[in-house]
Design a protein around this nucleic acid. Structure first.
Lengths: 231, 231
DNA sequence: CGTTGAGTTGATGGAACTCAAATAGCGTGG
DNA sequence: CCACGCTATTTGAGTTCCATCAACTCAACG
């Protein structure tokens, strides 16, 4: 189950901005592992020492924050082409629990070999700082999504967000399957599953989307955005 | 208005973990400026190119996220001893607008000189990554505070958070003055100023705190924590 | 064809928002 | 130093949105 990165179709996706120079040559020596995680299985738990970071090739991984005694609150859904455990680079222990929402394939990159590479390459170090800063920004975006907006706006924003992230990775963004169930979405958005359901129904009634179970089709992305922005 | 860091009382506070080794010697060559910002004045705006980072010596700075067209939503209150614009290190343009809540004194450290220092010191680089990761974690904590909790719990959590941060910087944490007004607090917590006011009144009625205008006194921190945790 | 679990729909209550009015701070100028 | 006026904060009353509880639909599966 080992292979060089060059054979990976997600290469440019996994290492945005890093694709260039001599670094590319050396990354093949990193011994990246590929693993499969069954749906419902835990990748790592909060408090675990994390010695590698993860790139999602397919599937969906939910990150849970079980800090305050509550049963894991979803703080992020990792989609194909996105990274996990970046924020562990600093403290080296994870502050989230990552669980596969559905069967997923991942690449596992050990920190140590990667950080060696970073040592003599300021560009790689800068890239990592950028990636970590971005993961912090994502948390802030979710914050503003759920703090200032009501249910229908949150659900619209969620759909647009997933759509945009899929599209930016080259996947179809107009019609897709939500891997997670209603409870996970509700948890993520600070709502109840019934409310999420009602919002889906309402958006469908307005002909902005089409829903059947986990399948979502965005019919009118412009007006959906208006709902999101409350405009 | 220039001086070496050694003369600064907040030295150990501004550079947690960096205090040691040869780095300390060299930081005095960084030409740190000290500035005063009047209450209500803007330090930098979203979109500005930020070429230095800031350490708050006294006062209070609110960070606004004006991404989504709404009038600036408060995403953080910077307290004495804390840093600003760290997350700008990656993208180099700010994604927040920073406004002084009250008259504040800051240290301004130019990036370039600092990053030079970081180049040949892996420990400093690691420290920065840790600091940036922590600023991301703060956003996630605020997220879980306002997503899963109701008004009274949010306000309790806010007070405990401010108290702990002041105390960890050596300031009195049992009795303090909230620099920001009710609207800013409400905005930060995803509530209305009336609701914040009602929560203060209710917590005071239970003898957990004492409030007079901006002055807050924590009377029973243990029970206040119970309210926060909904226990 | 009954069972099971996810998802939807309906009815009701409660927490927080909104609007409005009263009060308390606070700076300013006489 | 006090009176004034302005703003921030508190308090009150009515309304709205979402959570809650419960019934129901639907599809998958043995």
């Amino acid at each position: 189950m080992r292979a060089g990165c060059a054979s990976c179709g997600l290469w440019r996706v996994c290492f945005p901005g890093l694709v260039a120079s001599a670094a590319e040559q050396r990354l093949n020596g990193l011994r990246i592992r590929r693993i499969r995680v069954a749906g419902g299985k835990t990748l790592y738990r909060s408090g675990d020492k994390v010695e590698s970071f993860y790139m999602i090739r397919s599937g969906c991984i939910k990150e849970l924050d079980d800090a305050h005694g509550r049963d894991g609150a979803v703080v992020n859904f990792g989609l194909p082409g996105e990274m996990l455990s970046l924020q562990c680079l600093g403290p080296s222990v994870s502050n989230t629990t990552s669980v596969a929402v559905e069967a997923s394939f991942l690449c596992v990159v050990p920190w140590d070999t990667f950080s060696e590479l970073g040592m003599d390459s300021p560009r790689v170090a800068a890239e990592f700082i950028r990636l970590i800063a971005r993961s912090g920004m994502a948390a802030r975006e979710l914050l503003t999504l759920i703090r200032d907006r009501e249910a229908l706006e949150r659900v619209s924003g969620f759909l647009l967000n997933v759509s945009a992230r899929l599209q930016s990775r080259g996947v179809r963004g107009r019609e897709f399957r939500l891997a997670m169930n209603r409870d996970d979405i509700a948890n993520y958005l600070g709502l109840r599953s019934e409310t999420v359901s009602r919002c889906f129904t309402e958006l469908a009634r307005r002909n902005l989307i089409r829903v059947r179970a986990k399948w979502v089709q965005i019919m009118n992305s412009a007006d959906l955005r208006k709902v999101y922005l409350n405009a």
